[in-house]
Simulated scan of single mutants.
Amino acid sequence: MPHVVILYTGNLESCTDMSGLCRKLADTMQTVRAEDGSQVFPTGGTRVFAYPAPHYAVADGGAAGMAAGGDGNYGFIYLNLRMGRGRSDAVKKQAGDALLQCAKAHLQPVFDKHHLGLTVQVDEAPGQVYDGKHSTLHPLFAKH
């Protein structure tokens, strides 16, 4: 932890460099500082993952976008920063603002040509209290 998970409509694959966005967001996380000037997110624990949604529905399906002169092919990107507990509200806001600005800058060419929504959400992990697992894979390998 901390992790940024990006969920996005698959139509954005051809519009922007998602790996580049991941790198920029990870680098941005390293710039966030606590009130005492210390780095908020440990470099070794910073991770950014992006997952395209091949199936999605956004807003009205494109009618308003086409009426506005666009192609009606809406896009959406959701960024979720999950961090450990204990940071001040000011640091949480600073982190969210920094990620939002980074994503907006990276995605500006997409915003210029397409109808696109972007959301950044920051969550705190109160601590892992349960780690349940169930698998039918392990017995396959236990026989040998």
Rank of each mutant, 00 (worst) to 15 (best):
L99R: 02
P2A: 04
G84C: 09
G62N: 01
A50K: 14
P126V: 14
D123M: 06
G127Q: 05
G86Q: 14
G84P: 00
M18I: 14
V32W: 07
S14Y: 03
R85W: 04
K93F: 09
P109S: 08
I77G: 06
T28W: 04
Q108D: 12
G84H: 06
F141L: 10
L118F: 03
R33K: 13
H114W: 04
D131W: 12
Y78F: 08
V48S: 14
L79C: 11
A142S: 10
A103W: 09
F49C: 15
Q39F: 01
L100R: 14
H55E: 10
G132I: 03
T28A: 15
K24R: 15
G96A: 05
A53I: 01
D97P: 13
N73W: 00
L12M: 10
L79D: 00
T119M: 12
G86I: 03
P52W: 00
G70I: 10
A103R: 07
H3F: 00
G84Y: 11
T119L: 09
R82V: 12
G70E: 02
Y8S: 15
A64N: 12
A53F: 10
L118V: 04
G96L: 10
G86F: 00
V58F: 04
P139N: 12
T46G: 01
P109Q: 02
L107V: 01
Q128G: 08
T43K: 12
P139Y: 01
S19A: 15
M66E: 06
K133T: 12
S135P: 08
D89K: 15
G132R: 03
